[in-house]
Amino acid sequence: MATNQTHSKPSLFQLVLLVAALLLVTVVTVPAAEAPDTITLNVLAELYEPVVFDHAMHADVAECAICHHQTTGQPEAGSRCVRCHSGNETNASVACRDCHVAEPFSADYMRSKEVDSERYHIDMPGLKGAYHLSCLGCHTEMGAPTGCQECHARTAAGDETFRADAQAPTGGNSH
């Protein structure tokens, strides 16, 4: 349940495998200019197929800070972040998953938040929340696709969970 992001391996000798690897594999610990073209996100891979995120295209239409806050060293003007984060430094990691945890409601994570009374970010969304809040917010504003299956196809397990088998009888659910 975490993003699958590993270094690419150019030594692979089969073309098919190379293409597949390019889809799956990305480099994140690089400056903005060296950002990956695509990132495969499979946090919801249980009910949905992984998302192949066209990072290059999105980097063309939006400022880094829209998604990456101050971490890329280009904070939004007047951003709250710069009060504490210097703003012109690039973080060691700008990957979403390095701050936004995959299991935000695990007992351990919640305890670690509560124990740390100095902690400022008490309301940081989990990884899944961060993706969707960030993506859907923009998509709605820009008129980009917002349907669930417009970004990621549902798996068989997803069909089962959503009871795609349900037939629509006349009437409705009983009250």
Partner: peptide, 12 residues
């Protein structure tokens, strides 16, 4: 039990 409509049906 199975709902009358699938959970992704906005008709509800």
């Amino acid at each position: 039990p199975t709902p009358d409509l699938p959970f992704d049906d906005p008709a509800v």
